[in-house]
Design a protein around this nucleic acid. Sequence first.
DNA 1: AGCGTACCGTACCGTACGGTTCGGATGTCT
DNA 2: AGACATCCGAACCGTACGGTACGGTACGCT
Lengths: 237, 237
Amino acid sequence: MNSAVTAIRNDAADLTGPAAAGYSARQNDVLETALALLVEGGERALTTAGVARAANCSKESLYKWFGDRDGLLAAMITFQSSKVRGASGADSPATRPAFRASLVGFAEDLLKVLSGDVSLALNRLAIGEARRDAAPLGRLVREHGRRPIEARLSALLEGGRTLGFIAFDDTRETYRTLYGLMVRDMHVRLLLGEAGGDDLAADAGRAIDQFLRLFGVSEEASEPGRQRPGAGNERTG
Amino acid sequence: MNSAVTAIRNDAADLTGPAAAGYSARQNDVLETALALLVEGGERALTTAGVARAANCSKESLYKWFGDRDGLLAAMITFQSSKVRGASGADSPATRPAFRASLVGFAEDLLKVLSGDVSLALNRLAIGEARRDAAPLGRLVREHGRRPIEARLSALLEGGRTLGFIAFDDTRETYRTLYGLMVRDMHVRLLLGEAGGDDLAADAGRAIDQFLRLFGVSEEASEPGRQRPGAGNERTG
DNA sequence: AGCGTACCGTACCGTACGGTTCGGATGTCT
DNA sequence: AGACATCCGAACCGTACGGTACGGTACGCT
């Protein structure tokens, strides 16, 4: 039943009971089976009748709770994101190895989430629905999924900068470069259906190594002649 | 009509006439309007009746030429990729600035193609169709779209290595890191419907600068103590 | 007991799509 | 000219979906 959830084994994932978002327990169950249905068969398998049958509820209730099919899709996204949120990145680590470890841990978490079944299915859904002008589901995914990631990682980066571990000008630019080093083309490849047997931990370590070689400040910091922070960032600042 | 094509203004894009792939001129026209339809309205707008009406052909001809709807989708992918292919990266540049310029040019081309309307629409189509197990369209996109890019860029990288401009062990790993530095999260953001007003040229230059700082070999090469090529790559080799 | 609410299960409706068939028009080859 | 192929336009069919309506049931409240 809830095997779809166990794919994303994030910290707050196990509390399926008490209304994680603004939904009742019964509605949570329905959203859960809807997610499982989506993971298994893609968008085509996510019919209102199918959800009602799999969740042992009536279509009438579906429409009462979620308005219409689009409302159900939106609810699935916010529901899933409400489970993943939270956890790591509380306060900035004080020592240099702790800072690196924090970055590596963040990278591992990110790669794990992005390669999760539910995340991939929801991203496929939002992308498949998107057109050039309007993409309401894509907007939801960005707001609830990617923006909090950027916020937490940006805080981590700026913390490392104030402590002198790294140096950069534009936070957003630096975040996006780090994101590129971590994710590379993995996400799109997985979205396109390629099997992702990558070693996430090794990828995380490599990405952070490369990032620190680009933005890291050498141990004997202070003297400004030695450090070579992210040159060229001011171009987009 | 064919305004959708002009978005990807690649070198071989203007020869719409003589059967670019294995299709007749008439079929090319049909595929062209089908792509325009897809770009405009997404997958839902790509109905067989709609394509027939927009292209002034009969559904009977559609089914005779492409088998069924899936065949039409596949034909659209191969057709589009057959137009983009070719051009840059003939032989490896001999001087260091030429090598860098070649990389920057490649990056600009890649970013331009990836952010093109038709490319985005086809990627959205393939991704929306993909499930965890089977993704025939995704496979087509990878084979016809991403693989040739990797091949050409890999050749460029290895050419630069033999000339001593850069140093690395695993070609594929190095390619993927460069890809990550170039594209970052731009592709997925565009796929999710975010407006992409980025400065592609600036992005290309920054990516290549960062890549060369990671993998470049200093001017006074030879002495092996100075150069610090991509450490950690052997982990995945 | 009586009433209201929430819900399930099913049947139903309108629509839109993929795919097929057919008549007729426009060629092209001999 | 006549035979043949190609193709368009339109009608058609079966199916499957989104959305609605209805009967029946369990539960809580007064």
